[in-house]
Simulated assay, not measured.
Amino acid sequence: MRHTLSVLVENKPGVLTRVSGLFARRSFNIKSLAVGETEQPGISRMTIIVEADSAPIAQVKRQLNKLINVLKIVELHPEESVERRLLMMKVHADESRRTGVLQVVDLFRAHVVDVQPESVVIESIGSLPKLEALLRAMEPYGVIELVQSGAVAIGRGDHSITDQLKEN
């Protein structure tokens, strides 16, 4: 089962290593990991996606809570959150292919961020299924290189998990 954890941590050296190490010691493969600062100075948010059964993930959440620099852990459920990823790909796009590539870019509401005589770099932000569909649509043109970020996710509604820190 897929679990998306939003983990608030103090923005200090070594925190990422300790958190990811906890998953490694439990033999969980992290499917996606993204870390960035929040609206609160000194606090970062880690979005971690893992495939695991519910019982082991509950144990990992308890162990995460014991780490010194971990402030809050929330599991985000798909129906109660919004998740996005960034994908950039370089695609063969010489004169004979460029029009077709640009039509696919427009269809997926992606953006061309670099143009060279034989290739273009395309940027797209979206859900994993959208990005996978874009990649499949570009395969006939020849994907030269691909890079993508981990997922970032946020809960829906007017509450914030950082608000919960202020209450504690």
Rank of each mutant, 00 (worst) to 15 (best):
R62K: 13
R62H: 08
Q63A: 09
Q63Y: 05
L64H: 07
N65E: 13
K66I: 06
L67P: 02
I68H: 01
N69D: 11
V70Q: 08
K72V: 07
K72N: 14
K72Q: 15
I73P: 01
E75S: 03
L76E: 02
H77R: 13
H77W: 00
H77P: 03
P78F: 04
P78M: 07
E79N: 08
E80R: 14
E80S: 15
S81P: 05
V82M: 11
E83Y: 08
R84A: 12
R85Y: 09
R85K: 15
L86Q: 12
L86F: 13
L87G: 02
M88G: 01
M89R: 06
M89K: 04
K90V: 00
V91C: 08
H92K: 06
A93F: 04
A93I: 06
S96V: 12
R97K: 14
T99G: 02
G100P: 00
G100C: 07
L102Y: 07
Q103C: 10
V104N: 07
V105R: 01
D106K: 13
L107V: 10
A110F: 13
V112H: 09
V112L: 11
D114H: 09
D114G: 10
V115E: 06
Q116S: 01
Q116F: 00
Q116N: 04
P117S: 07
P117Q: 03
P117F: 09
E118Q: 15
E118S: 11
V121H: 06
V121K: 00
V121C: 02
I122E: 10
I122C: 13
S124F: 11
S124M: 11
I125Q: 03
I125K: 07
G126W: 00
L128Y: 15
L128G: 11
P129C: 04
P129G: 06
P129L: 07
K130R: 15
L131V: 06
E132Y: 03
E132P: 03
A133E: 14
A133S: 13
A133C: 10
L134V: 11
L135S: 13
R136G: 04
R136W: 06
A137T: 01
M138Q: 06
M138H: 06
Y141G: 04
G142S: 03
V143W: 06
V143P: 07
I144E: 06
E145N: 06
E145F: 05
L146W: 10
L146D: 05
L146P: 09
V147M: 10
V147P: 01
Q148W: 01
S149I: 11
S149M: 09
S149D: 05
G150H: 03
A151R: 08
V152E: 12
A153I: 01
A153L: 02
I154K: 02
I154C: 11
I154V: 15
G155M: 05
G155N: 02
G155Q: 12
G155D: 00
R156V: 05
G157R: 04
G157D: 04
D158H: 11
D158E: 15
D158Q: 14
H159E: 13
H159A: 15
I161K: 00
I161M: 15
D163R: 14
Q164G: 13
Q164C: 14
Q164P: 00
